[in-house]
Design a protein around this nucleic acid. Structure first.
Length: 409
DNA sequence: CCTCCACCGGAACGAGGGGCGC
DNA sequence: GCGCCCCTCGTTCCGGTGGAGG
């Protein structure tokens, strides 16, 4: 229908599958009427943020729940509604969404918040990317907050990735310490680790009063409903009848991960499109599941340094050549030494390897468990891959620096 | 029962890279 | 352009701990 005769025939202008693929992007924020099964949680978030509408300080809130349970979606959605509601009373509310996986140091978080809140025209200050001391970034943040907004809502996604929780204390006490005078800050911390508050330092625990809220996984019916709400990403009649139920069922297998469900649906559409099919079928969905899992794993590790990849590769070899699933640090280290030699990498110290394994455990690439308590000799750490070694190997070898490993058995 | 020692994890430190303020 | 700052990746040193083994 959109085939225009006067356009360059080299490209195609009609998409037989997707009507609007953007509806399936993770960053896409659906309207409130399209959010499924989270009424109670939305209300709790709204309760916490409510004072912001009148320009008062909101309550801090921590949200817990597994991936794809709508934590950041609900936070952003409610924050937006607060902003527009406040605007009617001439109260300026801003929100800064920070992914602590990327911004995980004190200075970079403060910098990012300042950059998001700051309007140079209004404040007369700039926030450079580099070159300032941490203290200077704080100063600029307070100025930006004071001059540009009445209330700032700081959403810290993946807050457990923070290396230093000092930033939490400073943000939460900014008002009392008269760092800012005409403005206030509310913090929403999001984490998939429910025990996260235990890791906070005592200073922060005591100074950061907060509400807590848990998001449970979606069940299969809710996943179906969620996917149905995004059906209009596709043209009418393109989806076979069993596509959405199957996608929901596959995503519900581990836990009800809505993000995974949506990713699978999107990939199924893409695969169908690539094959020039005119409908999306169950087979496309099954292929899409595999691709989605590889993509996700790739996302997890692509940013890792080459040494971390070499260590993961060592664990992969061990897993493949053994009936065992988990391996002690020492064994992995010995295997790693050989891998590193073959690659011409420097061979890291065992201490460092231990640390890298720990980091990968944290990133949910591997799972590490200590046997026994304490740090005694009985407390061997054992590590195992969380993903199919075949997929892991394939993804790791995408890195050209590991290419020399390709030709072996 | 006691001692050794293997192992984990905390801390201090540094090299090298990037970049802004003044 | 100098000096200062942050960030990442890495090393070395060390203390606590509790099972193995006499």
């Amino acid at each position: 229908m959109s085939a225009n005769d006067d356009r360059d025939p080299l490209f195609r202008y009609d998409d037989p599958i997707f009507a609007d693929e953007r509806l399936l992007e993770i960053t896409h924020l659906p309207g409130p009427d399209r959010i499924v099964g989270r009424d109670e949680q939305m209300q709790r978030v709204a309760d916490a943020l409510n004072p912001a509408i009148f320009g008062s300080e909101p309550n801090h809130l921590f949200i817990f729940g597994k991936t794809g349970t709508g934590k950041s979606l609900i936070s952003r959605s409610v924050a937006k509604r607060v902003i527009s509601e406040a605007k009617r009373d001439d109260v300026t509310v801003n929100y800064a969404f920070i992914d602590c996986g990327e911004q995980n140091t004190e200075a970079s978080i403060v910098k990012t918040i300042a950059q998001l809140v700051n309007d140079p025209e209004q404040s007369g200050i700039t926030v450079p990317d580099r070159g300032l001391g941490t203290g200077d970034y704080y100063k600029r943040l307070w100025q930006a907050v004071d001059r540009c907004t009445d209330v700032t809502i700081v959403i810290l996604d993946e807050i457990d990735m923070l290396e230093d929780d000092e930033v939490l204390r400073k943000l939460s006490r900014a008002g009392e310490n008269r760092r800012i005078s005409d403005s206030s800050i509310g913090i929403i911390g999001i984490s998939n680790k429910i025990d996260f508050p235990d890791h906070l330092s005592e200073r922060v625990k005591s100074s950061l009063s907060r509400d807590e809220l848990v998001f449970s996984p979606y069940d299969a019916n809710q996943l179906v409903e969620i996917l149905e709400k995004r059906r209009d990403a596709f043209h009418d009649g393109v989806l076979s009848g069993d596509v959405i139920p199957l996608t929901a069922a596959l995503a519900a297998q581990e836990h009800g991960d809505a993000r995974k469900a949506i990713d699978i649906l999107r990939n199924a559409g893409r695969i169908a499109k690539k094959q020039n099919a005119d409908r999306v079928t169950a087979d496309h969905v099954r292929d899409a599941k595999e691709k989605t899992e590889a993509d996700r794993f790739n996302e997890l590790i692509e940013g890792s340094p080459q040494q971390a990849k070499a260590i993961l590769y060592s664990l992969t070899i061990l897993t493949e050549n053994s009936t065992e699933k988990e391996f002690p640090t020492k064994i992995i280290y010995n295997q790693y030494k050989e891998v590193a030699r073959r690659l011409g990498f420097d061979v890291l110290s065992e201490r460092r390897v231990q640390e890298i394994l720990q980091e990968q455990n944290f990133l949910n690439v591997i799972q590490s468990e200590r046997e026994g308590r304490g740090r005694g000799r009985g407390a061997h750490a054992k590590h195992r891959l969380l993903e199919n070694p075949v997929i892991v190997k394939k993804v790791l070898l995408r890195d050209s620096r590991l290419a020399p490993l390709e030709d072996d058995s």
